[in-house]
């Protein structure tokens, strides 16, 4: 970031921080000052508000200084253009890549991990994510991101409308089976997109191996090594459990 862009950013963060510190101070003012939590009379210096008041105060001063400095160096000018329709329609490559990364991270953490079997969720995150950046071809990046975006929207709608929980209640794998099919379809589709470029084909293979091996390894290591219950255990976890049960020596 060059200095001008930095001051423009400072101008915006200055305002955000001022708002935040005022909010901190407002919220703190609702804390008991001279009475304690239990309602007993108390003194100001034992109040739980004391420390947040100091922090909010200092933060307010510092953000005003930040804002003042930004204005003095011209940071308040020329910042409005950042949200013009033209820039929204044709974002820079940096923005596209950043947006894609954010999409994958958010979809993985907020949608996949809590509601889908850990190994399956991780594959659905890892494979398109790593492939997009390793193969590094804009069309693949875009198509993979669209798949994940579509999937996230569908999942979000199903979860918010209550269809997901109800369906899972009647049949545990109601959504995991379609997702497992998707997990097979995505690599097949990606392989067709890549065509017969030997370098990219090699990268595809490496990504595929890593995306299959690491979720499985992590799942087994955490589940059976460290005995950590996975956030959601479904298809793969049950399969692993079934296999373990099958091979378990009787009486052990």
């Amino acid at each position: 970031m060059n200095k001008e862009a930095m001051r423009r950013a400072d101008f915006k963060t200055g305002i955000i921080l001022i708002v935040l510190s005022v909010l901190v101070l407002v919220e703190t003012s609702t804390f008991p000052m001279t009475d304690s939590y239990g309602g007993v009379q108390n003194v100001w210096y034992v109040s739980p508000a004391l420390f947040p008041l100091i922090i909010g105060g200092v933060l307010l001063v510092l953000s005003v200084v930040l804002l003042a400095n930004a204005i003095r160096e011209g940071g308040h000018r020329g910042g409005a253009g950042t949200l013009s329709p033209r820039r929204l329609l044709s974002p820079s490559e940096h923005t596209v890549r950043f947006g894609t990364i954010l999409l994958y991270l958010l979809a993985y953490v907020y949608l996949f991990v809590p509601y889908v079997d850990f190994a399956l969720a991780t594959f659905l995150f890892l494979f398109p994510f790593a492939l997009s950046f390793y193969v590094d071809r804009p069309d693949i990046l875009k198509k993979m991101a669209l798949i994940i975006l579509g999937l996230s929207v569908i999942m979000a709608v199903l979860l918010l409308s209550g269809v997901w929980p109800r369906a899972v209640e009647s049949f545990e794998y109601a959504f995991e089976i379609p997702l497992a099919v998707l997990a097979i379809a995505v690599p097949v589709y990606a392989r067709r997109l890549i065509g017969d470029d030997p370098l990219l084909a090699r990268r595809f293979l490496i990504t595929l191996i890593v995306a299959i091996a690491s979720p499985l390894f992590l799942f087994l290591a955490f589940r059976y090594g460290l005995r950590v219950q996975m956030p959601h255990e479904g298809l793969v976890a049950d399969a692993a459990e079934a296999i373990r049960y099958f091979f378990r020596t009787p009486g052990a």
């Binding site: 994958y104 991270l105 993985y108 953490v109 991990v113 809590p114 850990f118 991780t122 995150f125 890892l126 994510f129 790593a130 950046f133 390793y134 590094d136 490496i206 990504t207 890593v210 690491s214 979720p215 992590l218 955490f222 460290l226 950590v228 219950q229 956030p231």
Partner: peptide, 25 residues
């Protein structure tokens, strides 16, 4: 480009396994 996404997975499982709390994630 391949190991950084795996690190993301490690961050996720690492935050979660403390207290088995999805909120930490």
């Amino acid at each position: 480009q391949v190991f950084m996404p795996v690190i993301a997975v490690l961050c996720v499982i690492g935050s979660y396994s403390l207290g088995l709390n999805v909120f930490n994630l």
